[in-house]
Amino acid sequence: MINPEADRPVYKQLADIIREQIARGTLAPGHRVPAEMDYVQEHGISRDSVRRAMAVLRSEGLITTTARGSRVRPEQSRQSITIGPADRVTARMPNPEERLRLGVKEGIPVLVVEREGEEPQLLAADRTEIHGDAAGRALGESGRNDLG
């Protein structure tokens, strides 16, 4: 339920509701998200708030929007890579050319895999699984993130 008196902005509350529906499977991958006016009427909020919520979800890679409306992003097949102790993996946001080449939507980061003697490999972070010793060591022995 959206509370206009809450400290959290209305559009973020709506984004939370839709995100939860996606996580639970109420809004399944590939299915259409209700129209803006449906949310306006159901929650008694402005169309601008609905549009801002949709922008948040698009930036998180949860939905895609075309002229025909928004849909829950379909599940993608995953690429599995194995890295060794000397390999380095970093994450960053792609530039427009990289997004186009990889088919990465706005808000989805890329992984840069660097291996000695090879050109860096650029992979879509939402479609890549990393396996190997180096991935485990990046979190430290305790399993906590030691990077910051």
Rank of each mutant, 00 (worst) to 15 (best):
E98D: 07
V113Y: 02
M93C: 04
I108G: 00
L102P: 06
M54D: 02
P109A: 03
E106G: 09
D38C: 02
G30N: 04
A138D: 03
V50Y: 07
G84R: 14
V40R: 07
R19V: 05
I130D: 07
R19T: 14
H131Y: 14
A67S: 14
T90Y: 01
A125H: 06
R88M: 09
V110S: 05
A55I: 06
A28I: 04
L139E: 06
T66K: 09
P9C: 08
R78I: 13
H43S: 06
A15I: 09
R71A: 10
A86Q: 15
Q13F: 07
A15V: 11
R88V: 15
Q13A: 05
V104E: 04
Q21N: 10
P85E: 11
L102K: 09
L122Y: 12
T26P: 01
I17D: 10
Q121V: 15
L14Y: 13
N95D: 15
E75N: 13
E129P: 02
I130N: 09
P96V: 03
T26D: 14
E75T: 14
T128E: 12
R101L: 14
D48M: 14
L139V: 06
E129A: 13
P120G: 01
T82E: 12
R137V: 12
V40M: 04
N145D: 15
V113N: 01
R115T: 05
M54L: 14
Y39M: 09
A135C: 02
T82H: 13
V113C: 02
A55P: 03
V50T: 01
L27F: 05
I63A: 00
S59L: 12
P29E: 09
L123I: 12
A86N: 12
L123S: 09
V56P: 00
Y11I: 03
I22T: 04
P109D: 00
H43Y: 15
H31L: 08
H131S: 12
G61Y: 03
R24T: 15
I45P: 12
A86D: 13
S49H: 10
